[in-house]
């Protein structure tokens, strides 16, 4: 038996020395240790061995099997390593400096800026609302305290429609509906497309976007308005900004303000963006007129609020340094394709 074993192991050693690949090793494994392998066959001979020798022969065979197993495994590992090295060594050298397919999609710059502003406000607990583009005269004017004979209602300023409605002239047109929709206190912003019957030039559009915000609670003060404006703009411009209020006049707020921000591009030193004035006029705002609250069923003796209207177009132009407002609605893909997904 020992002789047979020695012969097989010698045979195995020769075979393994000649083996070149994992496949060769696999074939050898089958030949030696497979179902009808050479060593497996030897085990079948045990039945003919006298009983008192069976244990010794069994030990002998198991030893041989283990030895064969470890020889094959060692060779398998060596061959696999060799193969891996070969694969790595012979791999095609990839020129990673070649261009990869680019993302050529883009969001409109307004969408990018709008999203950014919305995220600031939602993080401060504001809901984002949506408004109509065609509004009733009541919502657009009367509800927000624009007097019956106010010039803004004139044909030359407002797009009136043949069914008596208007293309909304400001996002304030949504105030009444939103004030009625939510329980108090309210913090909401509502971006939207607005329309004015204007001549279109580099600084004027008949179709433009605003983003309006309102806060209504029991003790809202001018100081609160300053707080929210400052926080929001600091986030948008990614630095602590200084703001100032000047007197303004709008029918829907009292008092009304024009809000300026210390030019974030030159820190107020004077640059083309702020026309060397150091300040940028950014946002009409004010304390919501008590009549506007009343019109929405809110008691102005108990509640007060503030509102602000950001020109989304202006913010977009400031953010990206766009000089001509007409570019925004132009559909000019040479321009629009330059903007990615985020600012």
């Amino acid at each position: 038996m020992q002789q047979k074993i020695d012969e097989i192991l010698a045979y195995l050693n020769n075979k393994l020395t000649a083996a070149k690949s994992s496949a060769d090793c696999q074939a050898i494994r089958v030949e030696i240790l497979g179902k009808s392998g050479k060593i497996t066959e030897l085990f079948r001979l045990i039945k003919d061995v006298p009983n008192e020798q069976k244990s010794a022969v069994g030990q002998l065979l198991n030893g041989a099997k283990q030895q064969a197993e470890s020889l094959i495994s060692a060779k398998e590992v060596a061959v696999a390593n060799e193969e891996l090295n070969q694969q790595i060594f012979s791999a095609k050298k990839i020129d990673i400096t070649l261009p990869a397919p680019k993302c050529t999609g883009s969001l409109h710059p307004r969408t990018i800026v709008q999203r950014e502003i919305e995220e600031v406000f939602t993080s401060m607990g504001f809901v984002v609302e949506d408004g109509n583009e065609v509004e009733t005269e009541y919502n657009n004017f009367t509800a927000v305290n624009v007097p019956e004979n106010h010039p803004a209602r004139d044909m030359q300023d407002t797009f009136w429609l043949d069914n008596g409605q208007v293309l909304k002239t400001h996002t304030s047109a949504s105030q009444n509906r939103i004030l009625k929709k939510y329980p108090l206190p309210i913090r909401a912003i509502f971006p939207g497309r607005c329309f004015r019957n204007e001549d279109v030039d580099a600084g004027h559009e008949n179709t433009f976007f605003q983003l309006e915000g309102i806060i209504v609670d029991k003790e809202v003060s001018v100081g609160n308005l300053i707080y929210f404006m400052k926080e929001m703009l600091s986030k948008i411009f990614k630095k602590e900004v200084e703001i100032r209020l000047r007197p303004g006049f709008f029918p829907f707020t009292e008092p009304s303000f024009e809000m300026d921000v210390r030019c974030p591009f030159c820190d107020g030193k004077g640059c083309p963006t702020c026309k060397n004035g150091g300040w940028i006029e950014l946002c009409p705002c004010g304390m919501i007129h008590p009549q506007v609250l009343k019109n929405a069923g809110i008691n102005p003796e108990e509640y007060s609020g503030c509102a602000f209207g950001l020109g989304l177009d202006r913010m977009t132009m400031l953010t990206f340094g766009i000089n001509d407002i007409r570019e925004l609605n132009s559909g000019n893909l040479k321009l629009l394709k330059q903007f990615g997904i985020k600012n």
Partner: peptide, 8 residues
């Protein structure tokens, strides 16, 4: 795709 804004 590229987003555009237009007139109504």
């Amino acid at each position: 795709l590229n987003e555009v804004h237009s007139y109504v």
